[in-house]
Write a protein that binds this DNA or RNA. Sequence first.
DNA 1: ATGAAAGCGCTAACAT
DNA 2: ATGTTAGCGCTTTCAT
Lengths: 328, 328
Amino acid sequence: MAVTTKDLARICGVSRTTVTRALQGTGRISQKTKDRILQTAKEYDYQPDLVARSLVKGKTMMIGIIVVDLKNQYFPKMINAMENCAKKHKYLLNITLHEGDRQTEIELIKTLVGHRVDGLILSTVNQGKDFEKLLENLAIPVILIGHDQAENIPCVGTDEYAATKEATEFVISKGYKKIIFVLPPMISDQTVVPKGHQQRLNGFEDCIREHPQIEMGIICHENYVKKAEEFIRTSEKKIAFICSGDTFAINILIKLENAGLYAPTDYGVMGFDNINIFKSRHPHLTSVDNNIDEIGERIMELLVDMIENKSPKESQVIQHTIVQGETI
Amino acid sequence: MAVTTKDLARICGVSRTTVTRALQGTGRISQKTKDRILQTAKEYDYQPDLVARSLVKGKTMMIGIIVVDLKNQYFPKMINAMENCAKKHKYLLNITLHEGDRQTEIELIKTLVGHRVDGLILSTVNQGKDFEKLLENLAIPVILIGHDQAENIPCVGTDEYAATKEATEFVISKGYKKIIFVLPPMISDQTVVPKGHQQRLNGFEDCIREHPQIEMGIICHENYVKKAEEFIRTSEKKIAFICSGDTFAINILIKLENAGLYAPTDYGVMGFDNINIFKSRHPHLTSVDNNIDEIGERIMELLVDMIENKSPKESQVIQHTIVQGETI
DNA sequence: ATGAAAGCGCTAACAT
DNA sequence: ATGTTAGCGCTTTCAT
């Protein structure tokens, strides 16, 4: 098995404390013994047992992350940014997936806390006072991904409400008189709209409310492309779709092309998240760039700060920008 | 702070040993004290310290993963599958990124081993005997992502050589007389072609060798779309591109459309990995489906088996299938 | 059926 | 400058 400080101590004929001192270069120790110990350590390829260190230090240098899954680009991209940031601060990431299940999320939180992660980052499916209480009592810093997700837990993310309001204003400014908001098709048993999408919807509706002359509609359906086509075919006004996610916008764009309908000629469409898998495609998709990388980085920086400096909890809004493509 | 077994023992007026027995339901213990202890544990929301348990058990229930990054869909998808599989076996994932840097990868391995992960999964950028030695001496099971990556370390992945040979045969069977292989554009300082892509290239070249009448070429350039266009414009024969990655195929497909060239009319193109971000697009991209989900799942199952049953190391080849789209 | 004691590998407070 | 001791929270013999 791996060589321990005890072994090194025995080999070098010193105490374990001396070994520790040599290893971490702290405390008074003669250069000679220090060199000898370090030499031996290298020779035997000593690697500290980080589990043992964690136990005594009460700190694991690990950060727990819980998100829904890694299927679309959103979280992988964000986690990629988080990882790079964590690496700078010598932290490791523990990534787990709740798959949209509330109970699973709760269990994962407990497991990660049991593993004594130093901090926790969640894209939560849970809500409500009880859940917030649970988080507040964790004794480690927690950050929620997304704007305004909870009262007393710091949240970092896009102000979806404002972004969507802005996007809607943008569409209106382009002269559209009828705008349809496309929500992700809901999985059968999941009746609640995820908070972020709900915030976007609110932003959309409130903006429309301020423009009574604009006609609006909502699509929230498995077969949203077909619904979209119906809207276009049966409407006299030219329609714009604002999709709560680039994937939906892209799908509409592509599938309707096959149906002989083109943006921005026959209708307009814009997305969200600016995933830009299609950055080489024409026409460029108009979208809202919510700076996923920056969200990841800022979350990690904030969390490390909370862990190491006990900084006060403070939410952050990450600035978004409207990406003017050619589809509106 | 969190309540410990010691606390529970004190509260219940028993020894810590008894508490442990109640908690893990093992050993002889009266039902009454057991109930009382469990009740108290629940009351105080006792959560075991998994770090301490790891130290004494010599097992962390964590699996280390090192891949290049999470930017394209390949690893996120695979890791998603791994995570779900790991969850079944109660393991947690430690995901880290080497970003293509050899030294970083070595350091990450040491860190993860220092954290006493029970097993390691790598998509490595390192090669050679020394590196293999390093892995062999780790004292924990290691699996490499990808076929035939090392001699004495189990490898799981697509047989890239065979798959590409097959793909090339497929293209030839469609009547193409000139085939161009598109490698990922190499980053300036990274002179070596990643092993998987090299294997694909070998399969391509060997297949061509068996068909002397077929003309061939290779593109490995930042501006591969332009190169592809040049090939088409200057060739009398109709050209097929086999791209070592769907992303490249898709980009060619899309950008050449803008240049007025259409597949499969003006040229043919097929990809690799069947990422199918574009599954709704027409024409459907012809590709090689390497079953990313299955690779992830099989790797995890194998690793857990190696960890828990000390199973002998054995590599696995995951079956691929050619996805007949409409671009060849 | 229950408890006492030792130890996992490390660090830190307190000697010498 | 170096060593001794105790302890992190848990599990695991080995008593009783």
